[in-house]
Amino acid sequence: MNNLRRLILKGSMAAGTLGVAAGAGLLVPSQALAAWPKEAFGQKTLDGALSVLLGSDEMGESADVSIKAPEIAENGAVVPVTVTASMANVESITIAAPNNPAPLVASFDFASGAHGYASTRIKMGKSGDVIAIVKADGKLYSARKNVKVTIGGCGG
C-alpha cells in the first residue's frame, strides 16, 4: 500500500494532476487511487521516467523477472508483452520501450493479493528492448528482451 500512497503524493506534486483526475469524475474505489503519473509518462528517457515514477532508476537484472515477447513482432503496433515476477511482495510492474518517443508505456500497481503478473500489448515504432521493472519490498528488479520490428513482406 505504501507504493500507492507514494504515487498519490507524487501525483499531487505534479502540477494539479490529481485535481484534474478527480474533477473529471473518476470512479473512486473505496481505497484511495493513485493519480495518472503525467510527469513520468512525459519523460523522453527511460532513466528519467523511472526516477520520476519509482523514485529511482537503480535496478539490477533479476532471474526472478521473466518477460515474454516475440523475437520478431508480427505487428509493431501490437506487441504482446507478458511479465512474471516470481519474488515475494511485488508492489508494481512497469513496462517500458526505450526506443519509443515516450519510453514509459504502462505501470501496474498491485494490492490485495495480486500476483506479480501483467500481460498487455504495446506499440513499438522500431526494433529495440522491452524492459520490465518490478518493484518488490521497496527494491527494483528488471529484465529485458529485444524485439525486432520489421517492415515485412517479401517472404516465401
Binding site: P70, E71, I72, A73, E74, N75, P80, T150, G152, G153, C154, G155, G156
Partner: peptide, 21 residues
C-alpha cells in the same frame, strides 16, 4: 507452419492467428 506468416504475408487475412517458431 511457417513461423513468420503474419510478417512475410498480410496479417489482415488471418487477424485472429499468431505464429512464431
Amino acid at each position: 507452419a511457417f513461423p513468420y506468416t503474419p510478417i512475410a504475408n498480410p496479417q489482415r487475412f488471418i487477424p485472429d492467428w499468431t505464429f512464431g517458431i
